[in-house]
Design a protein around this nucleic acid. Structure first.
Length: 261
DNA sequence: AATCAGACCAACCGCTATGCC
DNA sequence: TGGCATAGCGGTTGGTCTGAT
C-alpha cells in the first residue's frame, strides 16, 4: 500500500517529510540502527540523514523494518487467539500483539477493524439472539423484507409466558417461531395459529432489554468475584454504570487479575 | 470501459505514561 | 514535587486496490 508524500512542513530550520517511506529512507534507517542502535528517536533522524520526525522513524521501525516482523497471512490459530484476547483485554492492541510473536499492534488493530470486528460482532449478536431463545422463520408472509430475515434459525427453548399480564409473552415451544408479525405456533395436533402481533419495534426493544439484562448479569458476576466469561466489558464503564468503586486498585487491575488467573 | 463503493492498511495525530533532573 | 522530554499506545485519516454495476 503506497501512500503519497502528503504534505511536508517546516520544523524550525528543516523540512519534515510526511507520507510513505521510500526504499532509500528505509535503508538509511536500517543502516543507522544497525550501526548505532536505538538511542533516542527524537534526535536520531538528523544524523541518520532522514527528514522525518523521530516519531515517524519509530513507527516505521516498530511496524515494518525491525527484524522478525511477519506481515499478512494471519493464520486461523492467530485469528482465534486475537478474538479470544480481544474478548479478554478489549482494545489493548499492544497487549494482544505481545502474545503474538512477530505481529505488531498496528497490524492486529487493522486486522480487527477491517475483518474481525464485523464478523465477531455478528457472531455476538447471534449469541444474544440464541440467549433470547427466539426462533425466526422469515419466509412467512411478507417477512422476507424484515431486517431479521437473513438470520439463521436458532434453537428454541421454552419461554414461560407472563400469564395474565398486559404484555403477555406468547408461549414458545419447539414448534413455535417468532417473526415481526407475531409468534406462530405450529402444532400438528392443532390448527396453526398466530398469537397477538408484535411490532418490529417491540420485538427489537425486547431483544435489547434481554441483551441488557444478560449484560447486567455478567457485570454482577464480575463484581461477585466470579470469572468473567464473555464480552470485552469496559471496567471503567462498568464501575460508572453500577455506581461502584473498585477499591483495591483500578478496574483495569481487576480485569488483569482475572486474566492472570 | 468507466464509475463507484467498500475494503484494506500504512502512517499520522493526540493523548498518556514513564523517566529524569 | 513539579516540569520537561521522550516513548508508547490507540483512534483516525486518507490513498490505493478490488470487485460490483
Amino acid at each position: 500500500m503506497v501512500r503519497h508524500p502528503l504534505r511536508s512542513y517546516k520544523n524550525s530550520s528543516t523540512t519534515v517529510k510526511k507520507g510513505n517511506w521510500s526504499e532509500e529512507e528505509d535503508q538509511k534507517l536500517i543502516a543507522y540502527i544497525r550501526r548505532y542502535g536505538i538511542w533516542n528517536w527524537t534526535h536520531m533522524p538528523k544524523p541518520a540523514g532522514l527528514a522525518r520526525t523521530g516519531k515517524s522513524c519509530r513507527l516505521r521501525w516498530m511496524n515494518y523494518l525491525r527484524p522478525n516482523i511477519r506481515h499478512g497471512n494471519i493464520t486461523k490459530e492467530e485469528e482465534d487467539l486475537i478474538i479470544e484476547l480481544h474478548r479478554l483485554l478489549g482494545n489493548k492492541w499492544a497487549a494482544i500483539a505481545a502474545r503474538l510473536p512477530g505481529r505488531t499492534d498496528n497490524e492486529i488493530k487493522n486486522y480487527w477493524n477491517s475483518r474481525l470486528n464485523k464478523r465477531v460482532g455478528c457472531r455476538n449478536k447471534l449469541q444474544i439472539l440464541t440467549a433470547c431463545h427466539i426462533k425466526f422463520k422469515p419466509e412467512h408472509n411478507n417477512s422476507s423484507s424484515h431486517p431479521y430475515a437473513s438470520l439463521p434459525t436458532i434453537d428454541t427453548p421454552k419461554l414461560e409466558p407472563d400469564v395474565g399480564s398486559q404484555n403477555e409473552i406468547p408461549r414458545m415451544s419447539e414448534n413455535s417461531f417468532c417473526t415481526s408479525h407475531g409468534v406462530h405456533h405450529d402444532d400438528k395436533t392443532s390448527e396453526s395459529s398466530w398469537y397477538s402481533p408484535c411490532s418490529v419495534i417491540e420485538e427489537e426493544q425486547r431483544l435489547w432489554e434481554q441483551f441488557l439484562a444478560l449484560r447486567d448479569l455478567e457485570i454482577e458476576e464480575i463484581f461477585c468475584g466470579t470469572k468473567m466469561h464473555s464480552g470485552a466489558t469496559d471496567p471503567d464503564l462498568v464501575c460508572m454504570q453500577q455506581g461502584l468503586v473498585y477499591h483495591s486498585g483500578t478496574c483495569e487491575d481487576f480485569i488483569m487479575d482475572l486474566w492472570e488467573k
